[in-house]
Design a protein around this nucleic acid. Structure first.
Lengths: 207, 207
DNA sequence: TTGTATACTAAACATAAGTTTAGTAAAATA
DNA sequence: TATTTTACTAAACTTATGTTTAGTATACAA
């Protein structure tokens, strides 16, 4: 067997279908597949599709035009999503191309930060969090939440003013917002004056 | 006129087509559109599609089943891509929801780092670049290139060994790879021993 | 007021595309 | 060795889908 219980022909055809969907935003017809692979009879293609369906790689909406629908979770694993950047664990000597064996995964925001509904991004203005690796111009990924734990880096609004990014801590009855920069002072306020808007869960920087 | 020279009906139908493509990876048929909008005659829908084509929002592959193809650049602008996180410039007081007026753009890797073919991502191992805001566990976005300028943060391989991330500089005839951490030493080598694999163009961190 | 654009119905038509029947041949499997 | 699976051809059939013809009604501009 060629790959994952598919014959070579089935693999080729499945790949063609997926590439066509990526390219044209619609699946090919049986005859279009036949043309691509020089299969003159529609039955020849039909049989391959039956096999692909039986093996769980596609579903066919019976009777509908362009009814082939690949099972995305499976085919994406097989052919890749054509999205994101390959993450490598280390760069080794050799040619200029990346060794595929070395690839750990794909860098993609969707995967890295799921639950996008709760997230927003915030451009950093000052340099008060520089020692936490947060620089001016960085974009923070923030999870919207009204409370946070001590030690979290939070986005907070003080006295209905502009938002600020600081490390949260509590002493006695007061909220402490600590910068990660020795040239800035800790902000100490009564809890009623501080409104937590979210917790920083990621940083994205373009250099 | 409703929006961008479209009538309300045309806008609705165009939106339906785009959402259907996003959802099902294929455009609807004329009759499917008719069903959605309770238009019993295919001609009713057909006329709308003609209007949409004349106004430059879609193309129709004449004679082909599911031949409607929206002009992506235009429709994405109209309906959004449903991808990425909204980037806000500042967080202001008020409700827990984000003010739309405040949104500067969308955070998406494709847009932030185009030319994906030349890019790869590298997981950072040590803490030698901590003062450059590069921490252990961060993922670097690296542009593959065999040379770099002085001052660039580069991924380099020394003596065919494991890759390292340092700031590039040159003194006399030698390559200096400078860490951004006072506890580490600058690596000084002959150019023949250093192979530059790429330049760091971004950082992504999950916290 | 006449024409043009919008927004449809109803019915017929043409064809693109899915499906089925009948059969061949080689390769893999039991 | 027999049987199943793979990989097709050829032709007919069905139907989903695109297209056209003929006509109604309203709104708007020239």
């Amino acid at each position: 067997m060629y790959r994952k219980n598919l014959t070579e022909r089935q693999y080729e055809i499945l790949e063609f279908i997926c590439r066509r969907i990526d390219k044209d935003s619609r699946p090919p017809t049986i005859r279009e597949i036949g043309r691509e692979f020089s299969i003159s009879s529609t039955k020849g293609v039909f049989d391959h599709l039956d096999a692909l369906e039986k093996k769980g790689w596609i579903t066919k909406s019976s009777g509908e035009a362009r009814g082939i629908q690949p099972i995305r979770e499976k085919t994406e694993e097989l052919f890749g999503k054509e999205e994101g950047l390959p993450i490598v664990g280390s760069v080794v000597a050799g040619g200029p191309t990346l060794a595929v064996e070395n690839v750990e995964g794909l860098l993609e925001l969707d995967e890295m930060f799921p639950n996008q509904e709760e997230l927003f991004a915030l451009r950093v203005d000052g340099d008060s969090m520089i020692e936490a690796g947060i620089h001016k111009g960085d974009i923070l990924v923030v999870r919207q939440q009204p409370t946070a734990d001590v030690g979290d880096i939070v986005v907070a609004v003080i006295n209905d003013d502009k938002g600020t990014v600081k490390k949260l801590s509590r002493v006695d009855e007061e909220v402490h917002l600590k910068p990660a920069n020795p040239y800035y002072d800790t902000i100490v306020r009564d809890p009623s004056e501080v409104e937590i808007r979210g917790r920083v869960v990621g940083v994205v920087r373009k250099m």
